[in-house]
């Protein structure tokens, strides 16, 4: 089932066009990987999906992005609510300079999701468990989140993202600052999370895209060159540019 449908997306940074007529459907409860060389527009596209480009003054987005049959670029769209539904995890772990507990409770508090401390405790515990971090931090919930290791901080950010029960999680190179063990833990987590969430991950690691995703989109110079099942893209891509990129024949 299609969760997100983007139609004719053009993005401009001032006069420079960064994305050209992107039409991409994202399937529900699957992991979609976006790959492509630096500057190809994959992160720009990702940021369109929760209107993160709004914060860049010179950025203009044209086209339609339908999520649950609702155009998120419509004037009536409440961006705060949108970002509750569509969480994001960034390249560098960016926990708030607060305790582990507060990192998780921050979002649910803003969105009024807990009526009592017990309810909030439960949200914190569930989120940390879903992010596979509970075992490691349950005894130090009131210590600063910034005191955790890089991999733990990233899982804390994932826990923070899932605490508000988003339908979609956007991940922008979530493992690029992590060692292979922490990376494997995040990848395992992505596999688990897709049962309840739709995940879109931007990654420079083709091996990671191959490992974690069911669908892959290849971007080049602002265009979506090819999109299809990950299996097909990595074994027998249809477009020569895709093949040249994934086999290391570019440039």
């Amino acid at each position: 089932m299609i969760k997100i449908s983007s139609k004719n997306i053009d993005v401009f940074y001032g006069k420079k066009q960064a994305l050209f007529n992107i039409n991409l459907d994202i399937e529900e409860n699957q992991v979609t990987a976006l790959i492509g060389p630096s500057g190809c527009g994959k992160s720009t596209f990702l940021r369109c999906l929760n209107r993160m480009n709004d914060v860049i003054d010179i950025c203009r987005v044209k086209g339609q992005i339908m999520i649950n049959d609702f155009d998120i670029n419509d004037k009536s769209c409440d961006v705060v609510r949108l970002r509750e539904k569509i969480g994001m995890v960034f390249q560098k772990p960016n926990p708030f300079p607060k305790t582990i507990y507060e990192n998780i409770s921050y979002g649910p508090t803003i969105h009024g999701m807990a009526q009592s401390k017990n309810e909030m405790d439960e949200i914190v515990e569930t989120s940390l468990k879903k992010a596979a971090l509970w075992e490691e931090v349950q005894d130090r919930l009131h210590e600063p989140g910034t005191g955790l290791s890089g991999g733990q901080q990233q899982r804390l950010c994932i826990a923070r993202a899932i605490s508000v029960k988003p339908e979609v999680i956007l991940m922008d190179e979530p493992c690029s600052a992590l060692d292979p063990i922490a990376t494997a833990q995040i990848e395992e987590l992505i596999d688990e999370l897709k049962k309840d969430h739709t995940i879109i991950i931007v990654t420079h690691s083709m091996a990671q895209a191959a490992r974690v995703s069911q669908n892959t989109g290849f971007f080049h110079l602002g265009e979506l060159i090819e999109h299809g099942s990950t299996d097909k893209i990595f074994k027998n891509p249809e477009n020569k540019k895709t093949q040249d990129y994934i086999t290391g024949r570019f440039g």
């Binding site: 990595f234 074994k235 027998n236 895709t242 093949q243 994934i246 086999t247």
Partner: peptide, 9 residues
């Protein structure tokens, strides 16, 4: 090398 696509084949 972890070959992909045509290289894998």
């Amino acid at each position: 090398r972890q070959p992909m696509a045509i290289d894998l084949r």
